[in-house]
Each structure stands twice: as C-alpha cells, then as structure tokens.
Simulated scan of single mutants.
Amino acid sequence: MVQASPAVLPLSAIVTRLRAAGCVFAEDEAELLISTARTPTELVAMVERRVVGLPLEHVLGWAEFHGRRFDVDPGVFVPRRRTEFLVDQAAALLRPGSVVVDLCCGSGALGAALVADRNRGPGAGHRPVELYAADIDPAAVRCARRNVDFVGGRVYEGDLYEPLPGTLRGRVGVLLANVPYVPTEEIDLLPTEARVHEARVALDGGTDGLDVLRRVTAEAGRWLAPGGHLLFETSERQVPEAVAIVARDGLVPRVADSEELYATVVIGTRPSG
C-alpha cells in the first residue's frame, strides 16, 4: 500500500479530478486508488485511466463481490452487486459434495464466491463442492482461472456446455448461468463503462434479451442431477417469458427478488422423478 505524498498527487487533487470526470463517489474512489497503487507513478496512471472512463474495477484490477476481492482484467465483465442475491439463492440450495457449474462465468466471481466458504472456510467438511466454470471469451477465461483456482475449481473455454467434461451430465446440483439479458437494441443505452469497456458477448442477449437463456435451458435438463437447480438473473419485465421458457424445457420455475438490490432471479428445478 502506498500513500501518495501531497507533492506527488494529494488526495484532494485526485478527488477534484474524479469529480470533474463525473465520478459520483469521488472520495471513495480516490481512497481505493491510493490504497491499491504500489508507487506514486502507478497512482498517477491509475487516476488518468479512471478519468478517461475506464471502469474503476478495471483500473484497480479487482472487484469486491460477496465480501471478497476477485481479479477483474480489462475488458472482462464486472460482477454487479445485485448479483450477490443470485449467489445467496444458490447457497441456500447447495449441499455437501455438490457439483456446481458456472456458465458465462466472466471473471469467475459467482462460482468462486459460492463455494469459497464451503471449501476453504472454517466450516469446510470432508466433501468439498466441485466447481466447473466456462466462458466463450478467452480474456474472461484467463481471468477466471486465477479466481477459480483459488477454490479448487476448473475453468474451460468454449460456448456454454460445449467445453465441459461429459462426465458432468446428470450430476450438476447447482447451475449458475449469468447469461447476458440486455436486448440488442438497448445495448447503446447502457452506461459507457459497460458498453465500451466490457465484452459485448457478456451483455447482448439478442432480440428480446433471452436468446442465450433459451440455449441454456434447452440443455439444462441433461446436465442437472434430479432435483438440481438452474439459477439465472433477469429483468423484472422479462420474468413472464423467462419463466415460460424454463417450464417449456421441463424445469419447475420459481422467482425470487430483492427490492434492496433491485435483483430478480429465476430458479428452475429438475424434477426428481
């Protein structure tokens, strides 16, 4: 940790520059930049990158998610705080020795956060959770491997289920699918930080925002264990169609939401019979 001296770049000067660039939480961001920079020169460079519009997490090189810090490389989808609600819902369904798959994993933060306490915390037992993650974006895969390796998981590069080991079919207890759900025509309405600096493949959900979800649910029943669960995030207005898609593909849907985090999660369960 390096505290920049006033002669190099004082806190007040950083706050002023960030505020002028439109950063709403300029004071908090300035403190994070100062505490993360290893040298005064690096601090100056980090401030410049933030001022020109790079997401704070890409400038820092990490994002805080579900009480932990995870690496987030430039161009990789930044895990949103609202998605912590999805992890909480999955945690309530997790069992000792479960197989977890994190599709469209991005940085791998969701799957890693879900299994971290089970595999490394004080309550970790003798049946660790197995974690497998996959993403089509090579940059995301490189980033995810660092985060997922920490909890003993494995990351694969490829399209949805395609790169996963076939031995997982019928064994998955929790399937996280943080699929893109922004309709194509609404991509240009996203904040610049997402639209310009995150991979489009992590944002664009097709004409109605549910194209990738349809592909996930179509195969989910083959990968889930009896009684296994698929969980994904969606917007409130997409819920009726998302629920219908889940039901059409043989899963039993239910909806959970959090007003505090403005998050909506759909859970599809494979019948046990």
Rank of each mutant, 00 (worst) to 15 (best):
H126R: 14
R127G: 00
P128V: 09
P128Q: 00
V129F: 06
E130D: 14
E130F: 00
Y132H: 15
A134I: 03
D135Q: 11
D137H: 11
D137E: 13
A140H: 10
V141P: 12
R142Y: 00
R142L: 13
A144K: 12
R145N: 05
R146W: 09
R146G: 10
D149M: 01
D149W: 02
R154Y: 01
Y156S: 12
E157T: 08
Y161H: 06
E162K: 09
L164S: 11
L164Y: 06
T167W: 03
T167G: 01
L168N: 07
L168P: 09
G170N: 08
G170H: 11
R171A: 12
V174W: 07
L175A: 02
A177M: 06
Y181C: 07
Y181Q: 08
P183M: 11
P183N: 05
T184C: 00
T184W: 02
T184P: 08
E185F: 07
D188M: 06
L189C: 14
T192A: 14
E193A: 15
R195Q: 03
R195E: 01
R195S: 12
V196M: 02
H197R: 08
H197L: 05
E198K: 03
R200F: 01
V201N: 00
V201R: 12
V201M: 08
V201E: 13
L203V: 10
T207Y: 02
G209L: 10
L210W: 10
V212P: 03
L213I: 07
R215W: 07
V216H: 02
V216N: 00
T217D: 02
A218Q: 13
E219I: 00
E219F: 01
E219Y: 00
G221Y: 01
A225Y: 01
G227I: 14
H229M: 00
L230M: 08
F232T: 14
E233A: 13
E233V: 14
